[in-house]
């Protein structure tokens, strides 16, 4: 018998799925998951993603209702439409999960991320960094003679763009919160 050749496109997910997984478009979705803030709930959500081979691009979590002990987890994930549907259904199955919202399909939503940039340098580069920070409406939250820490809020794309600009100007460290998102409108 010839050596085993794994056919291109053989999926890891189902033993019998020999379809080309690239045949379908990969979409990026932002999910908001409202959970009971109980021990281990984040591990359940993350374990679901790693155990079933789903992607996490970004994840944020914090308690949003202290009296009701509810937390909101915002997850940015990618996958084929079928996988995205699976992710939502699987999240919905976790016992302490109350609501799963797909902000990407449930109408317009705002997405914001906060980031802290440490930029070190002197002379022209330092002046340029400060000038660009001003254009991006970043705040200076710490400064020394050789460095700034900028605080910037915006869409992930805006933060990516700012990072690209800061890199040649002495970007030393970067911390991002991941995306927080809400649907627009009164509901």
């Amino acid at each position: 018998m010839a050596a085993l050749k794994i056919k291109k496109g053989a999926s890891r997910k189902s033993a019998y799925d020999l379809r080309d997984p690239h045949a379908e478009v990969i979409e990026r979705h932002t999910l908001a998951v409202v959970v009971d803030n109980e021990a281990g709930v984040l591990a359940r959500v993350i374990g679901l993603f790693s155990g079933r081979g789903y992607n996490i691009e970004s994840l944020t979590v914090a308690e949003v209702d202290h009296t009701g002990h509810r937390s909101r987890i915002t997850i940015v994930t990618t996958g084929t439409p079928q996988v995205i549907e699976q992710i939502k259904a699987q999240l919905g199955r976790i016992v302490p999960v109350h609501e799963v919202h797909d902000l990407t399909v449930e109408g317009a939503a705002v997405e914001r991320e906060l980031a802290l940039f440490k930029v070190a340098g002197s002379g022209e580069r330092r002046v340029e960094a400060l000038r660009l920070a001003d254009i991006f409406r970043a705040n200076v939250v710490d400064s020394t003679l050789e460095s700034f820490v900028f605080e910037i809020t915006g869409s992930p794309e805006k933060i990516d763009a700012f990072a690209d600009l800061m890199r040649p100007l002495g970007l030393a460290e970067l911390a991002r919160t991941g995306v927080a998102a809400l649907a627009r409108g009164a509901e």
Binding site: S14, D17, Q82, E85, Q86, A89, Q90, G92, R93
Partner: peptide, 10 residues
């Protein structure tokens, strides 16, 4: 179980 639906077969 909603997650069983459309998991592998549409």
């Amino acid at each position: 179980d909603a997650s069983s639906i459309n998991k592998v077969i549409h």
